[in-house]
Design a protein around this nucleic acid. Structure first.
Lengths: 189, 189
DNA sequence: CGGTTTGCCTAAATGGATTAGGAAGTTACA
DNA sequence: TGTAACTTCCTAATCCATTTAGGCAAACCG
């Protein structure tokens, strides 16, 4: 019997690739076993169950995005940082649609807290340092930025902007401009 | 044999209720059959397949939201309209989480075009009449508003804002304020 | 009232998720 | 090097959802 060399690590990585190829919904324990040319039951030594697999893929995606965002923000500030940050999410979603979908897989509170989620919030907050907003407005702005990035990328991925002018890239650029302007002129209570 | 009186209409409506109760992911043809105390195969006279069921629930949700949005916009304009519009989505998502999830179920282009999707875009555009933006900025703004509403509500539904201060309602109010301000001071190219 | 349509059925094939238990491969250590 | 302990992967079985084919009975329509 030749061993396939399965590890949780490799399975999750392969699961993420599978998600990008066929969609996160189609990621099943069975499909993953087929990809490793191994019986389904073998995976259950490395994964608790199907949900565990999906959760791990989600955590991988969140961590990858946070890594890229952190790199993109290094040495940038203000509008430059804002644009680079936003592009990280958009580019990631375009390059890795399955992983991006995975990143929205519902996590239980404990898992979410231990995920890269808080890092995302920290990074968003770092951008806002260039805009000098007092609390609690800073928190509102963090939530706004998160909503816009996530919302835009989701709608774009769903094809929402595909079949009408102007093209999506142009809107994206202008929306980043608009957000920059908004943050520089954040309305007082 | 007493007939159960199944129709596509009733099945979809019950499917939507089921989605709100147990989550859209858990809506299956089997669960629906159980709810009507009927054999699974019987549903296939009324539904093409499982995907058809989900698509129909999605269309129902999109139409319901568009109806509510249209009603909310009647007689309002400017910031008043903006706030009311945004609240429709938020309230709908809170009251009908399963249906709201359903509304993001991927539709093929033909179905999407025949859905209430375009009506949503029209309604968003109606709000912007109060802000006097020239094209193509109006389109960018439509996309921004759609992104914020969708993004915020998604993140909120996923519990993103649940465990930190300030509370979500306050952020939401301030974000609507901020968007109003942005639309009134939309930056030139 | 007889024929047709419709609504729901039984039956069966397919495929994913999951568990129990076993055998082959690997490692550690005497 | 021999062997015990552990790890990895397997067979086999169960359960549940999806989907299709074909049939009987109820409802409707002339």
């Amino acid at each position: 019997m030749v061993r396939a060399g399965l590890t949780t690590e490799r399975l999750v990585r392969a699961g993420a690739e599978l998600a990008d190829e066929v969609g996160f919904e189609q990621v099943t324990v069975s499909a993953l076993a087929r990809r490793f040319d191994v019986k389904v039951a073998s995976l259950y030594s490395h994964l608790k169950n199907s949900q565990d697999l999906k959760t791990r893929i989600a955590l991988l995606a969140l961590a990858e995005m946070a890594d890229r965002a952190a790199e993109a923000l290094a040495g940038r500030s203000g509008k430059d940082a804002l644009g680079a940050f936003a592009d990280v999410y958009r580019d990631y979603a375009l390059a890795h649609p399955g992983r991006y979908t995975a990143a929205r897989y519902p996590l239980d509170p404990g898992t979410a807290a231990a995920s890269a989620g808080p890092r995302h919030a920290q990074l968003t907050r770092a951008i806002l340092r260039g805009y000098d907003l007092p609390e609690p407005d800073q928190t509102h702005a963090v939530r706004l930025l998160g909503s816009v990035c996530h919302g835009y990328v989701s709608l774009e991925a769903a094809g929402g902007f595909a079949h009408s002018a102007p093209n999506s890239q142009e809107s994206w650029t202008r929306i980043v401009d608009a957000l920059d302007s908004l943050l520089r002129n954040w309305p007082a209570r």
